[in-house]
Amino acid sequence: MVLVPDPASPRSRSRSSSVSTTNSDVALPSFASLAPSRPPTTVAEEETRVSIPGLEKKVILKIDAGPGCGGVAWAAGEVLSRYISYRYSIDPTILRNKKVLELGSGTGLVGIVAGLLDPSSEVWVTDQEILLDLMEINAELNIPSPIPIPTPTWTTSNITSVIGRRNVHAVELNWGEDLSDSDIPIEEIDLVLAADCVYFEPAFPLLIKTLCDLAPVGKEMDILFCWKKRRNADKRFFSMLKKHFDQITIQDDKIGEKDMYGKQGVSLIKLVRRK
């Protein structure tokens, strides 16, 4: 979940006058300048548990509404999590040994679910800096880091070994910024996940630029995009997006699932980069 002001505030409903496409000669503003960070306000002990079919245990999430809307679990994240869990139960290759990146992760729910489903996957949950601690805490709660095992005293070495490793990593990623210096292996990403990233209109061009950078023309990759319809401004985003991506409505979800989340105003699509 991207860090933004409250969607109900007048500021968040204002229209962007900066750019309308990723090909504009006008410089894009920084994400931080559009949505400045705010300190957390929610007590550290507050948490929720999300049940995802296909997982043995509920996903534990610390939540924090202080930094805006990012630190809270929203319906679109649960819908996307249930979808990838269902598809994984049919075809595990969608995650097996795949490198996965979630945009606007917020609590990290969707990426954590992907990491739980298949330990062989490598997952990066991303958002603004102020949400890094929250994502890191939630990743650790659900997929604890391995415990170092000291080398036996009868050996000549004091080296400590670690069996296994956590496959979900929390990383800062601000939309619109250059990805070449990222710690994430951007060119190796196989799957991009994005849930509820559409409601802050000034950031639309930044999100589209990042999607284009992650999926350059000619690269074969999947992008799963889920959002809740809130206002007419959403149409502007998808009008901008269609210049770069075909938008394919997901039809292979579990029977009855689409009808259920459709009543909540949630949509789930696959994006395919246009050539």
Rank of each mutant, 00 (worst) to 15 (best):
L3I: 03
V4C: 10
S9E: 07
R11D: 04
S12C: 12
R13M: 10
R15C: 03
S16W: 02
T22N: 12
T22K: 13
N23L: 15
A27M: 07
P29M: 08
P29D: 12
S30F: 13
S37C: 09
R38M: 14
P40Q: 08
T42C: 09
T42R: 04
V43Y: 09
E47G: 11
R49Q: 14
V50F: 10
S51A: 12
I52F: 08
G54F: 05
K58A: 15
K58M: 11
L61F: 09
L61D: 05
I63C: 12
G68S: 01
G71K: 08
W74T: 10
R82S: 13
Y83C: 01
Y83N: 04
Y86C: 06
Y86N: 08
P92C: 07
P92L: 04
P92S: 12
R96C: 11
N97C: 09
G104I: 04
S105K: 01
G111F: 08
A114C: 13
L116C: 15
P119S: 15
V123Y: 02
D127V: 01
L134C: 05
M135N: 02
E136L: 09
I137D: 13
L141H: 09
I143F: 08
I149V: 12
I149A: 08
P150S: 12
T151F: 05
T151K: 10
T153A: 15
T153P: 13
T153E: 15
T156S: 15
T156D: 14
S161F: 01
G164L: 00
G164N: 06
R165V: 05
H169G: 02
A170Q: 04
N174Q: 15
W175T: 06
D181G: 14
S182T: 10
E188P: 09
E188C: 13
D190R: 05
D190K: 04
V192W: 08
V192R: 06
A195I: 09
A195W: 02
D196L: 02
C197R: 01
P202N: 01
A203Y: 03
L206H: 05
L206N: 06
K209S: 13
K209F: 03
L211G: 00
P216T: 10
V217M: 12
E220H: 09
M221F: 10
I223V: 09
L224Y: 08
F225M: 06
C226K: 07
R236H: 14
F237C: 10
M240W: 10
L241N: 07
K242H: 09
K242L: 03
K243R: 14
D246R: 09
D246V: 07
Q247V: 15
T249Q: 12
D252E: 11
D252M: 08
D253K: 08
D253Q: 08
D253H: 11
I255Y: 00
Y261C: 02
K263W: 00
Q264H: 00
G265C: 00
S267Q: 12
L268E: 00
I269E: 01
I269K: 06
L271C: 06
R274M: 05
R274V: 07
